[in-house]
Design a protein around this nucleic acid. Structure first.
Lengths: 189, 189
DNA sequence: AAATTTACTTACTTGCAAGTAAGTAACAAC
DNA sequence: GTTGTTACTTACTTGCAAGTAAGTAAATTT
């Protein structure tokens, strides 16, 4: 993936990458510093504590999500869902990453309150969007599943991070199978 | 929960508890030692390296799963599914734990190969069992979902760990909602 | 009752990661 | 041309967790 912009932006990008790959607590300033060929202390001057970086990572991911949301605002629900699934395929293919929500969900009992709040806020945003997309798909007739859009969105919100976790253990073929089944579940009647 | 048996058994039990709660890498010998009111070095005499304890944790969980499987061998598929879901409710209620598979899935990129193999083996066992249960439910007419038992099992295998991750962030009400939707999906026609 | 084993403890080393204080080189502003 | 600011580096402290070597006290075996 691209690694552009200011040093500060690169730090966030790499921090996110390592956090998704290794877990928030196993992501270290030294890894980021080495990758950028600068000294660890330089990162502390941008993000004094790891909590600051953690928050920046979530905010960056949220910002990327919002960009995606706008980009697909006028697309069909199917296209939106495909874009979402593609994101997850990329996480998986690009270093067995978890999604940011899954990353901080996994570490949730071991992170500062501020990060928890930031993650919760971000997750609500995604869940609301997904619910809207599913509703839209029902309205347009593209989807026709049992139950409400909220219920289906809830399931997806849990399943998506789960696919990455399980995909790590079971491998790519299995990962893709789950995604396929998941998508199939939008048209069951 | 109970904490009985030999010191070695208690170490595994507590290790599992802390690993599920905090993550494998944030589970420390010192926590276990303190809880048992012994010194950390004593744990090293039972489990020289953390890898040894990690493997023992998975094997214990697998053994508990096999016990459960036998206990419900002659129950209806619905009872089996309920038992499974109840396990997850307990994980959630008892300290926001992840399941053991989710725990090691989250830490997967950061653990020794031996632990990965052990986790993969255990996951296959669960997935096969779940597929059988779903097939059994279709045969008996208790369930009637779209797609094959394998497909449905794949979805469940991803969703179950996901519910715990997401439940941490969204809270118990949401966690229970997802479980409900999930179960509902077994009877859609 | 001597020898061995069990179940630990004491005391130590090593290594790593976070965090901080102080310094510097380059460039920009006035 | 001095003053300040930006973008770092050097060098340090602190704290924690893993791992190990050696010791000990009580129970068990012979």
């Amino acid at each position: 993936m691209e690694l552009t912009g200011t040093t500060k932006e690169k730090i966030v990008e790499l921090g996110r990458r390592y956090a998704q790959q290794l877990g928030y607590n196993s992501m270290h300033y030294s890894q980021i510093a080495d990758a950028l060929m600068i000294k660890r202390a330089a990162i502390h001057s941008y993000f004094p504590g790891k909590e600051d970086l953690g928050i920046a990572i979530i905010q960056k991911d949220k910002s990327d999500f919002l960009t995606m949301r706008e980009r697909f605002a006028k697309s069909t629900p199917t296209k939106k869902i495909d874009a979402l699934l593609k994101n997850y395929q990329q996480y998986f293919a690009d270093g067995n990453k978890l999604c940011v929500i899954g990353t901080f969900g996994s570490a949730y009992t071991d992170i500062p309150e501020k990060i928890k709040a930031e993650a919760a806020d971000y997750l609500n945003l995604i869940a609301d969007w997904l619910t809207d997309v599913l509703q839209e798909g029902l309205d347009s007739g593209e989807f026709n599943f049992e139950g409400s859009p909220e219920e289906m969105a809830n399931l997806w919100i849990a399943t998506l991070p789960g696919t990455l976790q399980i995909g790590r253990i079971k491998g790519e073929v299995y990962f893709k199978k789950i995604q396929k089944s998941l998508k199939k579940g939008l048209k069951t009647k």
